[in-house]
Amino acid sequence: MTPAVSDVKTLQIDGIDVSAQADQTILDAAREKGLSIPTLCHLDGLGDVGACRLCLVEIKGTSKLLPACVTRVEEGMEVTTQSERLLKYRRMTLELLFAERNHVCSVCVANGHCDLQVLGQAHGLTHVQFPYRYPKLPMDASHDRFVVDHNRCVLCTRCVRVCDEVEGAHTWDVMSRGIGSMVITDLHQPWGESDTCTSCGKCVQVCPTGALFEKGKARLVAKSRDFLPYLAMMREGK
């Protein structure tokens, strides 16, 4: 069915004329046009939460930067996805992520297959200007097959969302606030004692970093995430 004319919005992204459906986000519309906006918490097939702020874009008429993954297109919008200012903030965001917990890439299971690492490299990060915090964080290896290492978690909540939205188990959630936030299983019980975890491993596949991994593998092979958009599509019956 072709959408009604009123459902279609026309806007400009990086000077290019774009038409999009009213319920599309700026990120969707940009990617359909082949324009790339960096993302970390977004994953095709999962609902968006705007947690990482890497996808911030400039919109003419407002001085605020807005996250492209949760901002809907509007008629006549003029969006800029690449600028000196955006690059500065994206870099800063990445540096803060590296400084917040303990990322030791050389000995990390995700080395070479990590979204954070790739983003750092793509943004020309050669060092972190903020002092590292070096928090003391636990690892939980109580599950038969999987491990969570909080040292590497970037709190993107992909695990929380895939477990809730796709698997329907809602084993994962986020506890506490601000810098004290942590992903937990059930009511902050050891993962291996969780009553709700089905051991499906979806959380491990969607985790962008070395925070969730399979036991017995010293190095991760690339994670597989293709199942997500497919599942989402089948469920919506599109």
């Binding site: 303990n102 990322h103 030791v104 890439c105 050389s106 000995v107 060092h127 590292y132 070096y134 928090p135």
Partner: peptide
């Protein structure tokens, strides 16, 4: 020139820092 991850990030030697 800061050469390598230990000089640039602290890397493995810095893993003692939480203690």
């Amino acid at each position: 020139i800061s050469l390598g991850d230990c000089a640039v990030t602290g890397n493995v030697p810095a893993m003692r820092n939480p203690f």
